[in-house]
Amino acid sequence: MSVAEDQTSRSAERAPAGKVTRDNVLSLRGLTKAYERGKPVISDISLDFPARGVVAIIGPSGTGKSTLIRCINRLVEPTSGQVLLGGTDLTKLRGAGLRAARREIGMVFQEYNLVERLSVIENLLCGRLGYVPLWRVWMRRYPDEDIAHAFALLERVGLADFATRRADALSGGQRQRVGIARAVMQSPRLLLADEPTSSLDPRTSVEIMELMRDMAAERDIPVIINIHDVALARRFASRIVGMSGGSVVYDGPPEGLNDDHLTQIYGRSETGGWIG
């Protein structure tokens, strides 16, 4: 992505809230989730996500990052508010309509969430479950173009030799590569990632973040990443959303994020100062 493009996408982000522009793939309006009545985990979140680039949502655990990202594809049912994906309010959808919307949103998980006893290639093909008719799934007769796509993606994530290996035979980093490939198999309009590196060592974390950013950029898929690691967020995101106590307390470029913001998001660090 060129600098000029980056600038335009940044200016699109600054469009006044409340106006859903064509450039935004996703808009949240007054999104609230309360698991218990009167105790919202996230309250009144309004955000716009541009059609390209990586947005990192940072914040301490328990601040509702995970709830927020799960409200987008309704793995968690929002209490109120709107989730607008290309102008469609996902909170109004049910049944087949909801499934059709979900398949346009890829998701990467902290614990990879692969089907352990299936082969790597079949895990990738699981990304097509929203498209492929049930009898084909049952008979394992996936369409040829899906199989070709799966092998191409496996090659891209560097696991071409592991296609027939069972998912539980892979290391953490390899599993997350499969997780990313499975999400991209959906040919999504948007990629969500919930703490994709929290179960990985620092070096693998960087590799996974690079892979996710590059694969999304190659395919023009915008990415929203929940991540508590500020250094990784700064390094890979073009925009950072800081959350604290269920609300957005910072929204802007990584360079604008200073120690005061971080203190506001994470509270006072005992060692003082922040690395990153």
Partner: peptide, 19 residues
Amino acid sequence: GPVEALTAAGASWPALLLK
């Protein structure tokens, strides 16, 4: 976990049972 992932991929209920 895997069920959640397949739900997020837009899998129908029988597909969730199956895979």
